[in-house]
Amino acid sequence: MIRLTNVHKQLGGRKILDGLSLEVEEGETLVILGRSGTGKSVTLRHVIGLLTPDSGQIEVLGEEISQHRPENLRTVRRRIGYLFQDGALLDWLNISDNIGLPLRERREHSEKEIVDRIEEVLAEVELDGHALKLPSEISGGMRKRAGLARALVCHPEIMLHDEPTSGLDPISSSVINRLIMKLKGMGITQMVVTHDMGSAFEVADRIALLHQGTVRALGTSDEIRQSTDPAVQQFIHGKVDGPLAREIREDPDSSNNNESEES
Protein backbone atom coordinates (compact mmCIF):
# COMPACT_ATOMS: atom_id res chain seq x y z
CA MET A 1 0.00 0.00 0.00
CA ILE A 2 2.74 2.43 1.05
CA ARG A 3 6.33 1.40 0.52
CA LEU A 4 9.40 3.57 1.02
CA THR A 5 12.62 1.95 -0.13
CA ASN A 6 16.02 3.32 0.78
CA VAL A 7 14.88 6.94 0.74
CA HIS A 8 17.54 9.62 1.09
CA LYS A 9 16.76 13.30 1.54
CA GLN A 10 18.87 16.30 2.39
CA LEU A 11 17.25 19.53 3.55
CA GLY A 12 19.03 22.74 4.42
CA GLY A 13 22.38 20.99 3.97
CA ARG A 14 21.57 18.27 6.49
CA LYS A 15 20.81 14.63 5.87
CA ILE A 16 17.29 14.16 7.20
CA LEU A 17 16.38 10.78 5.72
CA ASP A 18 19.31 8.44 5.35
CA GLY A 19 18.22 5.25 3.66
CA LEU A 20 14.77 5.03 5.21
CA SER A 21 12.76 1.94 4.32
CA LEU A 22 9.27 1.43 5.60
CA GLU A 23 6.20 -0.48 4.55
CA VAL A 24 2.57 -0.06 5.51
CA GLU A 25 0.16 -2.81 4.54
CA GLU A 26 -3.37 -2.24 3.38
CA GLY A 27 -5.65 -1.52 6.32
CA GLU A 28 -2.76 -1.25 8.73
CA THR A 29 -2.17 1.59 11.17
CA LEU A 30 1.52 2.38 11.55
CA VAL A 31 2.60 4.75 14.29
CA ILE A 32 5.83 6.68 13.77
CA LEU A 33 7.75 7.78 16.81
CA GLY A 34 10.93 9.78 17.05
CA ARG A 35 12.46 12.83 18.62
CA SER A 36 11.58 16.27 17.37
CA GLY A 37 13.41 16.96 14.14
CA THR A 38 14.12 13.36 13.19
CA GLY A 39 12.16 13.73 9.98
CA LYS A 40 8.74 12.32 10.81
CA SER A 41 6.87 15.13 9.09
CA VAL A 42 9.39 14.96 6.25
CA THR A 43 8.58 11.25 5.84
CA LEU A 44 4.85 11.93 5.61
CA ARG A 45 5.49 14.72 3.09
CA HIS A 46 7.31 12.24 0.89
CA VAL A 47 4.36 9.87 0.94
CA ILE A 48 2.02 12.56 -0.39
CA GLY A 49 4.55 13.91 -2.88
CA LEU A 50 5.12 17.31 -1.29
CA LEU A 51 8.79 16.41 -1.16
CA THR A 52 10.66 14.28 -3.66
CA PRO A 53 13.48 12.06 -2.45
CA ASP A 54 17.08 12.64 -3.52
CA SER A 55 17.19 8.91 -4.14
CA GLY A 56 15.07 5.88 -3.33
CA GLN A 57 11.60 4.69 -4.27
CA ILE A 58 8.23 5.65 -2.89
CA GLU A 59 5.30 3.49 -3.85
CA VAL A 60 1.81 4.57 -2.85
CA LEU A 61 -1.39 2.75 -3.86
CA GLY A 62 0.57 0.72 -6.37
CA GLU A 63 2.15 3.73 -8.06
CA GLU A 64 5.76 4.78 -7.93
CA ILE A 65 5.38 8.48 -7.16
CA SER A 66 8.90 9.69 -6.42
CA GLN A 67 9.41 10.96 -9.97
CA HIS A 68 5.82 12.02 -10.65
CA ARG A 69 5.04 15.50 -11.86
CA PRO A 70 2.33 17.40 -9.95
CA GLU A 71 -0.32 16.71 -12.61
CA ASN A 72 0.19 12.97 -12.26
CA LEU A 73 0.19 13.08 -8.49
CA ARG A 74 -3.39 14.26 -8.55
CA THR A 75 -4.99 10.85 -8.95
CA VAL A 76 -2.98 9.42 -6.06
CA ARG A 77 -3.51 12.44 -3.82
CA ARG A 78 -7.25 12.30 -4.27
CA ARG A 79 -7.23 8.99 -2.45
CA ILE A 80 -5.15 10.27 0.48
CA GLY A 81 -6.10 12.47 3.42
CA TYR A 82 -3.47 14.45 5.30
CA LEU A 83 -3.77 16.04 8.71
CA PHE A 84 -1.27 18.88 9.12
CA GLN A 85 0.46 19.52 12.39
CA ASP A 86 -1.37 22.85 12.74
CA GLY A 87 -4.53 22.15 10.78
CA ALA A 88 -3.58 24.44 7.85
CA LEU A 89 -7.09 25.86 7.43
CA LEU A 90 -7.72 28.88 5.19
CA ASP A 91 -8.37 31.77 7.52
CA TRP A 92 -10.95 33.62 5.40
CA LEU A 93 -13.29 30.63 5.11
CA ASN A 94 -15.40 29.44 7.98
CA ILE A 95 -15.01 25.92 9.31
CA SER A 96 -17.80 24.51 7.21
CA ASP A 97 -16.47 26.05 3.98
CA ASN A 98 -12.95 24.93 4.82
CA ILE A 99 -14.14 21.37 5.19
CA GLY A 100 -16.24 21.53 2.06
CA LEU A 101 -13.46 23.08 -0.02
CA PRO A 102 -12.01 19.90 -1.54
CA LEU A 103 -15.49 18.67 -2.46
CA ARG A 104 -16.60 21.97 -3.95
CA GLU A 105 -13.41 22.38 -5.98
CA ARG A 106 -13.91 18.94 -7.49
CA ARG A 107 -17.32 19.96 -8.74
CA GLU A 108 -18.58 16.40 -8.80
CA HIS A 109 -21.26 16.65 -6.14
CA SER A 110 -24.43 18.64 -5.70
CA GLU A 111 -24.48 21.36 -3.06
CA LYS A 112 -26.95 19.27 -1.04
CA GLU A 113 -24.64 16.26 -0.99
CA ILE A 114 -21.74 18.48 0.04
CA VAL A 115 -23.62 20.10 2.89
CA ASP A 116 -24.77 16.71 4.16
CA ARG A 117 -21.27 15.32 4.02
CA ILE A 118 -19.87 18.35 5.88
CA GLU A 119 -22.40 17.86 8.66
CA GLU A 120 -21.49 14.20 8.87
CA VAL A 121 -17.75 14.78 9.33
CA LEU A 122 -18.30 17.73 11.64
CA ALA A 123 -20.27 15.43 13.90
CA GLU A 124 -17.55 12.81 13.70
CA VAL A 125 -14.95 15.21 15.07
CA GLU A 126 -17.50 16.72 17.49
CA LEU A 127 -17.44 20.22 16.08
CA ASP A 128 -21.15 20.43 15.22
CA GLY A 129 -21.80 23.76 16.88
CA HIS A 130 -18.86 25.56 15.30
CA ALA A 131 -19.52 25.23 11.58
CA LEU A 132 -19.91 28.95 10.95
CA LYS A 133 -16.95 30.19 12.96
CA LEU A 134 -13.71 31.33 11.39
CA PRO A 135 -10.54 29.39 12.17
CA SER A 136 -9.26 32.33 14.22
CA GLU A 137 -12.32 32.12 16.46
CA ILE A 138 -11.75 28.56 17.66
CA SER A 139 -9.00 26.96 19.72
CA GLY A 140 -5.92 25.23 18.34
CA GLY A 141 -7.27 21.82 19.23
CA MET A 142 -10.52 22.56 17.44
CA ARG A 143 -8.61 23.74 14.38
CA LYS A 144 -6.77 20.46 14.34
CA ARG A 145 -10.04 18.54 14.50
CA ALA A 146 -11.41 20.71 11.69
CA GLY A 147 -8.28 19.86 9.70
CA LEU A 148 -9.00 16.20 10.31
CA ALA A 149 -12.58 16.65 9.17
CA ARG A 150 -11.35 18.27 5.96
CA ALA A 151 -8.99 15.37 5.36
CA LEU A 152 -11.82 12.88 5.85
CA VAL A 153 -14.47 14.62 3.82
CA CYS A 154 -13.44 12.97 0.54
CA HIS A 155 -13.42 9.40 1.89
CA PRO A 156 -9.66 8.79 1.68
CA GLU A 157 -8.23 5.28 1.40
CA ILE A 158 -5.08 6.38 3.18
CA MET A 159 -4.93 8.80 6.11
CA LEU A 160 -1.68 10.45 7.15
CA HIS A 161 -1.84 12.09 10.57
CA ASP A 162 0.86 14.51 11.68
CA GLU A 163 0.56 14.72 15.45
CA PRO A 164 -3.21 14.39 15.63
CA THR A 165 -3.38 14.75 19.40
CA SER A 166 -0.65 17.23 20.27
CA GLY A 167 -2.06 20.30 21.95
CA LEU A 168 -5.39 18.64 22.67
CA ASP A 169 -6.96 18.15 26.07
CA PRO A 170 -7.26 14.52 27.20
CA ILE A 171 -10.90 14.27 26.19
CA SER A 172 -10.35 15.68 22.70
CA SER A 173 -7.37 13.34 22.39
CA SER A 174 -9.64 10.42 23.17
CA VAL A 175 -12.09 11.64 20.55
CA ILE A 176 -9.30 11.64 17.98
CA ASN A 177 -7.99 8.24 19.08
CA ARG A 178 -11.46 6.81 18.83
CA LEU A 179 -11.78 8.28 15.37
CA ILE A 180 -8.48 6.76 14.29
CA MET A 181 -9.72 3.41 15.61
CA LYS A 182 -12.94 3.88 13.71
CA LEU A 183 -11.07 4.62 10.48
CA LYS A 184 -9.02 1.53 11.16
CA GLY A 185 -12.23 -0.42 11.51
CA MET A 186 -13.28 0.89 8.12
CA GLY A 187 -10.11 -0.58 6.63
CA ILE A 188 -8.35 2.72 5.99
CA THR A 189 -4.56 2.53 5.87
CA GLN A 190 -3.03 5.02 8.27
CA MET A 191 0.30 6.50 9.24
CA VAL A 192 0.23 8.33 12.54
CA VAL A 193 3.10 10.53 13.71
CA THR A 194 2.73 11.17 17.39
CA HIS A 195 4.55 12.05 20.61
CA ASP A 196 1.68 10.74 22.69
CA MET A 197 2.71 7.28 23.94
CA GLY A 198 -0.74 6.44 25.24
CA SER A 199 -2.29 7.17 21.89
CA ALA A 200 0.52 5.36 20.06
CA PHE A 201 0.05 2.10 21.91
CA GLU A 202 -3.71 2.42 21.69
CA VAL A 203 -4.08 2.83 17.94
CA ALA A 204 -1.00 1.12 16.49
CA ASP A 205 -0.87 -2.16 14.63
CA ARG A 206 2.84 -1.60 14.40
CA ILE A 207 5.18 1.08 15.69
CA ALA A 208 8.32 2.43 14.02
CA LEU A 209 10.93 4.45 15.87
CA LEU A 210 12.83 6.83 13.61
CA HIS A 211 16.35 7.77 14.56
CA GLN A 212 19.08 9.43 12.50
CA GLY A 213 17.17 9.13 9.26
CA THR A 214 16.36 5.44 9.42
CA VAL A 215 14.05 3.07 11.24
CA ARG A 216 15.73 2.17 14.52
CA ALA A 217 13.03 -0.22 15.70
CA LEU A 218 9.87 -1.66 14.21
CA GLY A 219 7.30 -3.97 15.71
CA THR A 220 3.87 -4.44 17.23
CA SER A 221 2.98 -2.50 20.36
CA ASP A 222 3.99 -5.45 22.55
CA GLU A 223 7.23 -6.01 20.71
CA ILE A 224 8.15 -2.35 21.11
CA ARG A 225 7.17 -2.32 24.79
CA GLN A 226 9.34 -5.34 25.44
CA SER A 227 12.18 -4.32 23.14
CA THR A 228 15.64 -4.60 24.65
CA ASP A 229 16.97 -1.80 22.46
CA PRO A 230 18.05 0.91 24.93
CA ALA A 231 17.00 3.63 22.48
CA VAL A 232 13.45 2.27 22.39
CA GLN A 233 13.28 1.99 26.15
CA GLN A 234 14.66 5.47 26.55
CA PHE A 235 12.13 6.92 24.14
CA ILE A 236 8.99 5.26 25.44
CA HIS A 237 9.88 6.05 29.02
CA GLY A 238 11.10 9.54 28.23
CA LYS A 239 14.45 9.14 29.95
CA VAL A 240 16.96 11.94 29.61
CA ASP A 241 20.00 9.70 29.41
CA GLY A 242 20.52 7.11 26.72
CA PRO A 243 21.52 6.68 23.10
CA LEU A 244 18.94 9.16 21.81
CA ALA A 245 20.09 11.93 24.12
CA ARG A 246 23.68 11.46 23.02
CA GLU A 247 22.75 12.20 19.43
CA ILE A 248 21.31 15.54 20.43
CA ARG A 249 24.51 16.51 22.18
CA GLU A 250 26.61 15.55 19.18
CA ASP A 251 24.36 17.37 16.76
CA PRO A 252 22.95 20.49 18.41
CA ASP A 253 20.93 21.29 15.28
CA SER A 254 18.75 18.26 15.30
CA SER A 255 16.07 19.44 17.70
CA ASN A 256 15.73 23.09 16.80
CA ASN A 257 12.77 22.58 14.51
CA ASN A 258 9.76 22.68 16.73
CA GLU A 259 8.61 23.36 20.23
CA SER A 260 9.45 20.26 22.18
CA GLU A 261 6.51 18.01 22.43
CA GLU A 262 8.28 15.12 24.04
CA SER A 263 6.16 12.80 26.02
Binding site: D91, E105, R106
Partner: peptide, 21 residues
Protein backbone atom coordinates in the same frame (compact mmCIF):
# COMPACT_ATOMS: atom_id res chain seq x y z
CA UNK B 1 1.68 33.54 5.80
CA UNK B 2 -0.22 30.84 3.96
CA UNK B 3 3.06 29.38 2.78
CA UNK B 4 4.67 29.21 6.21
CA UNK B 5 1.54 27.87 7.89
CA UNK B 6 1.37 25.02 5.34
CA UNK B 7 -1.91 26.22 3.84
CA UNK B 8 -0.44 26.24 0.33
CA UNK B 9 0.76 22.66 0.85
CA UNK B 10 -2.71 21.76 2.06
CA UNK B 11 -4.18 23.11 -1.19
CA UNK B 12 -1.71 21.07 -3.25
CA UNK B 13 -2.63 17.95 -1.35
CA UNK B 14 -6.30 18.54 -1.99
CA UNK B 15 -5.35 18.79 -5.68
CA UNK B 16 -6.41 22.44 -5.70
CA UNK B 17 -3.94 24.36 -7.80
CA UNK B 18 -2.70 27.37 -5.79
CA UNK B 19 -2.24 29.20 -9.10
CA UNK B 20 -5.86 28.72 -10.05
CA UNK B 21 -7.27 29.18 -6.55
Amino acid sequence: TMKVSEEIDALRIMSISPVRF
